[in-house]
Structures are given as structure tokens and as C-alpha cells.
Design a protein around this nucleic acid. Structure first.
Lengths: 154, 154
DNA sequence: TTTTCTGCAAACGATTTGCATACAC
DNA sequence: GTGTATGCAAATCGTTTGCAGAAAA
């Protein structure tokens, strides 16, 4: 579909950080690098990132991973997603207004998470804002059910 | 809007329980009663339920509350909802096909949770099922933003 | 040199679990 | 009676925090 929707790469990290008084560190760079260089690995938790680092002989503490993921989310470089599996997961922010939102189909049986793109919600957002005065800045849509391989009617 | 959409009341509890080999207990009855008799109190966490019970001179252990909420969800009497505030919350299931889904507007400033009803997603569900073969049984939609009182442009 | 950052270990809060007793059937 | 449920306390799991030393700016 598309290769590189993320707004922020490694180059922008230093700027984004110093803009807010934060410092560039090898740990932060390395953690962001995982997300940038492995776009196929989606939805990593702090523990996932930690394990990935250790497998690549990187000795970054778990607390630092948590702090970096928090920080990168605060900077808008990553976004937190939640699949109800008891831990926060992260993905590169693709919040480009020209890029469609993507959301998640969560299989109740095999726990697979499938992504889909949609832009049907614009009218709904418009309606809500008009009816309730609620100013929407983001939305999150999850569909629960059974994926192709797990369907109940198979 | 509507008074009593829940499919299951206290009367059905015993049947639902024994159907699956579970027993009716005063604790389970009392916990469900809170949800049925106080429809205005939405989105209660286990701790909320526990506090509510203690205020009403009921001595039910916290572990029992957790177990009962789990069980009532498993039976389809309650549904778990998650507002990302670090604890599971529950509400009466209103999964009647004739009743519109309701979803949540979460204010990022005052943390208020506003409910809204919608039935715009039927077509989207149809499209997804057709395109991806994913069989949808439930969906969850959250809009994040600023409520009428907290809007950035005020 | 000043401030922020890291890493460790301890603290934390929500939830779960083991176990002996109590209760529903 | 038999098997499930309860209540308590201890265990667990993801995450956060305090603090002393290390490293950016």
C-alpha cells in the first residue's frame, strides 16, 4: 500500500527533542530506530522493544525503554495503541491529514490484529461535533470478531 | 432517551448461571443489582463497585467483586469497556440488535466520558466483512477531544 | 558545569491466585 | 454430600519512581 507514512524519522528526532528541552541520547535514537527500520513489526510493547534490544546486544534498561516510549509519544513521533491485552503498544505516528486513519480488527480467537484503512468517519465526526459541541481531535476504532482463518462458520 | 435496554435483569441471572453450572449467590446478585438499579451510574470499575458495596454496608471481598464482574461479562450480562485510565470498567450489556450501539466521547482535559448513539457503522462493517473476510461480532469506537466546556477555542 | 538521562532496585496499582472455610445445589 | 464460591493474604504483572552515577548541552 504505502512505504513510509511516518512524519518523523531519525533526522527530525534531535530537533523535536531540543525544541522542548530534551536531550538526544543513543538510547532514544536506538529505540526510535527500531520502529523506523522495522515498519513491518507493528504494535510493539515496552517489553517487546526491550527484548528486541537485548537480542541485538543492546543493553538498555527496561525503565529507560518505558521512558523513551512515553517521550516519543509525547512528541507525537509514536502513538500508543491498546488492544486490551494488558500492555501499552506503540506504532509510528502516521497522522498526516492526507493519510487515511488506520484501525484494527482484533480476532477474538487467534488474537491476530489486522489493520485496515478507513475514511468513512469524517461525516460521523462532523455530525457529533455539530450535535454535541464535542471537539474531536482523534478517534480509535476497533472491531472484534473472527478473522478469515478463525470464522465460526468454517 | 431510553430507560431499560439491558437484556438481562436479576430474574434471568439464576437461569443464565445454572445453564453453565454456576451457582446463584447473594454476592453475585447484589453486584448485578447495582448495575440494574442504578442505570445512571455508568462505567464502574471493580474498585467503584467495591466502594459502593461498602457504603451500603455490604461486606463483599474485592476478589469476589473481580470474579463476579468477570463472570457477568462472560455471561454477556455486563460488558467491559476501557477508557485507558488503567482499570477495567463495566456497563450493562445493551447488545440488542434493535438498540443502537453507543460509544464514547472522552474529554482529554476533564476526563469526562460522554455517551453517544450511532448506527453509521453498519455499512462499514459490511464493507470490511466483504473485503477482508473478517467476521465482526462487536465494535468499539472512541473519540478523543474536548467537550463543550473544555474546547480549546473557548 | 549544569541539567537532564540512565540503570538499578524498590514501589506501585490493578488484578489474579492459593488455600481453607462456607455455602448453594 | 459434593462441588463451587468466598474471603483473605500473598503473588503477579505491567508500569512508575527515587536515587546515585553518567552523559548531553
Amino acid at each position: 500500500m504505502s512505504e513510509n507514512h511516518q512524519l518523523f524519522g531519525l533526522k527530525d528526532l534531535r530537533a523535536k527533542l531540543s525544541e522542548r528541552g530534551y536531550k538526544m541520547t543513543p538510547q532514544r535514537k536506538e529505540i526510535l530506530k527500531i520502529f523506523v527500520e522495522h515498519p513491518k513489526i507493528h504494535h510493539m510493547s515496552a517489553e517487546d522493544v526491550y527484548d528486541f534490544l537485548r537480542k541485538n546486544d543492546s543493553e538498555i534498561g527496561l525503565a529507560t525503554v518505558y521512558r523513551a516510549l512515553d517521550l516519543l509519544s509525547e512528541l507525537g513521533i509514536l502513538v500508543q495503541v491498546d488492544f486490551g491485552d494488558g500492555c501499552a503498544r506503540y506504532e509510528l505516528n502516521t497522522a498526516d491529514p492526507n493519510v487515511h486513519h488506520h484501525h484494527h480488527l482484533i480476532c477474538l480467537k487467534c488474537k491476530r490484529v489486522i489493520e485496515f484503512e478507513e475514511d468513512f468517519l469524517d461525516y460521523l465526526e462532523y455530525t457529533i461535533e455539530k450535535q454535541s459541541g464535542f471537539q474531536i481531535v482523534n478517534h480509535e476504532v476497533k472491531f472484534f470478531g473472527y478473522c478469515k482463518d478463525c470464522r465460526a462458520d468454517d
